[in-house]
């Protein structure tokens, strides 16, 4: 399910089946020649990951709008805001709240976050239209899917 009119209606009719919320945590910046490209690429990859996961597991996973933040040295102000979001979801029947990010800074907050943080190693920037890249991405998606299914069993 996605945050869209049609999906939300389907969600309302099948609430008891959709117990998993997924939020991508996506940094961005306009500072630095390297970072601007790096984060844009990572954001693109994250979009592919999330939309594919949503497609595969549509009937149980709700993909929420991404949490975007400006990349700074500290995530302190963000994690509290994020926890409020996670609490809101927990209060509305989402049993599993998974937070996906390439940003390793989040790992410092792993214990303090109310949701389950899934840190993914970032890929090097490359052409997303190339067959090899797509195969790598496809295998990552398979791994993420397995991870979510594991989470369901726990």
């Amino acid at each position: 399910m996605k945050w869209m009119y049609q999906d939300v209606q389907a969600f309302q009719n099948a609430k008891e089946y959709i117990d998993t919320a997924v939020i991508p945590l996506v940094p961005y910046t306009f500072k630095g020649e390297v970072d601007i490209k790096k984060f844009a690429f990572q954001s693109e990859v994250m979009n592919i990951f999330m939309s594919q996961i949503e497609k595969q597991l549509k009937g149980r996973v709700f993909l929420l709008p991404s949490y975007y933040y400006i990349k700074t040295d500290s995530l302190e102000p963000h994690y509290q805001q994020l926890n409020e979001t996670v609490d809101h979801l927990h209060n509305h029947q989402f049993k599993h709240v998974l937070l996906f990010s390439f940003d390793k800074q989040w790992r410092k907050f792993m214990k303090d976050l109310h949701g389950e943080l899934v840190w993914l190693p970032a890929m090097k920037e490359q052409d997303l239209n190339q067959v090899e890249t797509q195969q790598v991405i496809q295998s990552h998606i398979g791994d993420i899917e397995d991870l979510i299914k594991e989470q369901w069993k726990s």
Partner: peptide
């Protein structure tokens, strides 16, 4: 596509 809620 699962006829229940659309998973694969």
């Amino acid at each position: 596509i699962c006829t229940h809620l659309g998973c694969i």
